[in-house]
Measured scan of single mutants.
Amino acid sequence: MGKSNSKLKPEVVEELTRKTYFTEKEVQQWYKGFIKDCPSGQLDAAGFQKIYKQFFPFGDPTKFATFVFNVFDENKDGRIEFSEFIQALSVTSRGTLDEKLRWAFKLYDLDNDGYITRNEMLDIVDAIYQMVGNTVELPEEENTPEKRVDRIFAMMDKNADGKLTLQEFQEGSKADPSIVQALSLYDGLV
């Protein structure tokens, strides 16, 4: 993909415009910024974590950033290329609610087996709590990752089998306004 070129080839721009919710001009602008920050044309896990640390200076986002990195890194080569970056950004910032929920499901399904187990969710929720640090005051019933996961599973795990399917996750998330709101945070920002 033209590693350190400051412009993408027209056919690449066209393809990314088809695969995302961005215009050709927006794709070019994002590429310019991506190459400025990642001259090699790729972003590794350490660089990704560094970006998260800028956004969450009062907590430790390392663990959460690693989980997000793994979802962005579609081809699992340990690096995020621009096409992976822009497609994930498109879903998280401008995707439909169902697209965002499928993306979030992939984030929580750490072993990619098609289910979110209690332990997988606990890993992610714990990482989120570490990331936000003491900057967020949580209600008593959610002031630990374990309590939050218990509440989520009580609401979403309809067949009580200890794991969530994509359908259970989507339906449960849509029924909880706070989850829908959290997924909409990026709307309109890009």
Rank of each mutant, 00 (worst) to 15 (best):
L89R: 01
G47R: 02
D150N: 11
M121T: 13
N75S: 11
T17Q: 14
C38L: 02
Y108S: 05
E137I: 04
Y31D: 15
D161V: 13
F56W: 09
G59D: 08
K7R: 03
G114D: 07
R151P: 04
A46Y: 07
D150A: 04
T17Y: 15
F64A: 06
K106P: 03
Q42K: 09
T144C: 03
Y21K: 08
T96K: 15
K76F: 13
R18I: 13
L183P: 09
T17H: 05
F169P: 02
P61T: 03
F22G: 11
D150M: 09
Q49H: 07
T165D: 13
R102V: 00
E15C: 11
A65G: 10
G59V: 09
A160L: 12
V136D: 03
P139Q: 11
L107D: 02
D176F: 07
A65W: 06
D161K: 02
D98K: 09
S93F: 02
K32D: 03
D176Q: 15
K147S: 09
S178H: 10
V91H: 04
E168W: 11
F58M: 14
E26C: 15
S6D: 13
D176G: 12
T96H: 14
S4Y: 02
Q170R: 09
G2D: 01
N70H: 10
E141G: 13
L89P: 11
S4R: 01
L101V: 11
W30P: 00
E140V: 00
K106E: 07
T144G: 10
E142W: 09
Q170K: 07
G78S: 04
L107V: 08
V125F: 09
N119H: 11
Y31G: 07
R94L: 15
R18W: 14
E140D: 00
S83M: 12
I51G: 03
F56R: 01
T117C: 04
A88S: 09
Q54P: 03
N143C: 03
E142P: 07
T96Y: 04
Q29T: 08
E14N: 02
R151Y: 13
A160I: 01
D109E: 08
D60S: 01
N75R: 05
G95V: 06
D123W: 01
F34S: 05
K19F: 14
F105M: 12
G162C: 01
N159I: 02
I86A: 11
D73P: 05
T96G: 01
D123G: 11
G188V: 06
G2E: 01
A182Q: 14
S178G: 11
K50D: 01
S184W: 09
G47Q: 11
D157R: 03
K3Q: 13
N143T: 09
Q29V: 07
I152V: 09
E74F: 05
A45P: 04
N5I: 15
D37G: 09
S184C: 06
N75H: 07
L189H: 13
G133W: 13
G188Q: 10
P145C: 10
E26T: 14
